[in-house]
Design a protein around this nucleic acid. Structure first.
Lengths: 285, 285
DNA sequence: ACAAGTATCTAGTAATATTACATTGACTGA
DNA sequence: TCAGTCAATGTAATATTACTAGATACTTGT
């Protein structure tokens, strides 16, 4: 799509007409034939074809294909905030798309080297603690649940007093993961500071460049668009959860295949809590 | 793409041949004509066309377009699980993409009418309770945090004894949201049964057709691919969280604009917990 | 104002997709 | 067991769509 705009200079004026029509409604372009596109651009069919060729396509069908693909890719749902008059389906879809967009964003902006180092640290930690307050409390609890299977002592603290006490009790070799959306919550920052001073390795799952990040040995996270709209949900915690997933998976991989027995025992311990129905029991709740 | 796999059951055997060829090399499919595809699938051209029609396409070109889009949408990893030899970047990207794929799936398969009814119920509830155990505990806690601002009494119970007691104490007009990935956890099902008998409206965020769903007035959720792989994270909780987001947003919208003052007061109450830095204070932790 | 070169169109041809109809094969009930 | 029915698939004709070649108009520089 941008390529069309870029190529405008090298197009003749009839081809420009085509470009305008395509850009004005790319969605209908990809479903129309060369004839109808020619008609709406008020040019002849071969002109449309030449236009396609000058854009490095083998012909019109190829052009349609590429436009279709770039449409699918590049629909950044950016300007779709939830609005008061949205139907249920409208705002539900917007929420899903915002969530996916933020994951997409995180996927392409995460520093995977840092993730790798975090995995190393977590894999070797004597004990692991997760701290989160407010909306990040649920992320910490989720993290505890995921890491519990990894045969390292792990706790989630969602009470700031407990966080401070636990932080003070850490020593070298322990790993503390501090989760905060803004990275500005004073109580959380204090807990991170105490833990770092006590000797623990502190990993921050938060905004880079935030006050919290200064008290972390390592920061995982991406700049996220601020939630300015009153209806907009905080999608950032989804990103945080996904990061937790990545870390837990990484540590599991690091443990190697001989660890699978242990995982199976943990999972099997839940079998009796369920109605069975021919499905494998290694499932979460 | 997944849709093709899903539709396999409803396809005839010639159409299956087409499906296999398409799935084995979708990239070349989108550049080939109906004739060449028919040849490589060893069927006739009309069969290919019928195949397209049974997948809700208007014809073969339309089908190519849609395949092209779903390819561009970039889910190359979706069917590939995390493997022991993956690099950090490899499995991290896989996890993000699996998560996005499951959200995409949920987006297109959710029953928005049921969501709408759930919003109505929640908006009118005298009090709201969220129950979740294990991995779903963090979802329940997150839900409590989100709904807290809505001026309706809301609690999350992650202890089954508390759930049972609370369930027994509900009355007509209360709403209980029961969260469970499998829908087979006996303790959770019992809590739902008790709540329903006590008169509460029970909304299940779980698998449809599960034992739990039988004790719910309303079930929100989608069939998810089971986690068979040992490394695969349970992406379903992301879907559940997104559903919670949708419900919370829906209730907020239902409250109308005069409710914004109240939201602002709740958010402002957190200002003093943060380091300020020229950013608007209505943010979560 | 005219020639050279480029851009655009008309009309015809090749390709591609779709439809209508015929054939096959599998199942059902007498 | 056999005739009848229906679904699945293929054949062949038709309609649609894309592409090519040659003719015409338009632009530009002298």
């Amino acid at each position: 799509m941008q390529k069309i705009n870029k190529a405008r200079v090298s197009l003749s004026k009839s081809e420009l007409k085509v470009a305008d029509v395509v850009l004005s409604d790319p969605n209908s372009t990809i479903r129309s034939s060369i004839a109808s596109l020619a008609r709406s651009a008020e040019v002849s069919e071969p002109t449309v074809n030449r236009f396609c060729r000058s854009l490095d396509c083998s012909g019109f069908p190829d052009f349609k294909l590429k436009v279709a693909q770039s449409l699918a890719n590049g629909t950044p749902y950016v300007n779709s905030n939830v609005e008061p008059n949205d139907t249920v389906e409208d705002f539900a879809i917007k929420i899903f798309e915002m969530t996916m967009a933020s994951l997409e964003d995180a996927k392409s902006n995460l520093d995977y080297k840092l993730i790798g180092r975090s995995v190393d640290i977590l894999a070797q930690a004597k004990k692991i603690e997760f701290y989160g307050l407010g909306a990040s409390a649920s992320v910490a609890i989720d993290a505890q649940h995921k890491f519990f299977r990894l045969n390292t002592p792990v706790v989630a603290y969602t009470d700031n007093m407990m966080q401070r006490m636990a932080a003070a009790a850490t020593t070298r070799g322990d790993c503390v993961v501090v989760i905060s959306y803004t990275g500005r919550t004073i109580a959380t920052i204090e807990a991170a500071r105490i833990a770092k001073e006590a000797g623990a390795t502190v990993i921050g799952v938060t905004q880079p460049e935030s006050p919290l990040s200064q008290h972390c040995n390592l920061v995982l996270g991406v700049e996220t668009a601020e939630d300015t709209d009153i209806y907009t949900p905080a999608v950032s915690r989804m990103v945080h959860l996904a990061i937790i997933d990545v870390l837990a998976t990484g540590v599991t991989l690091r443990r190697g295949p001989e660890f699978h027995d242990h995982l199976k025992r943990v999972k099997d311990s839940l079998i009796e809590t369920r109605f069975q129905k021919n499905l494998p029991p290694h499932l979460n709740n």
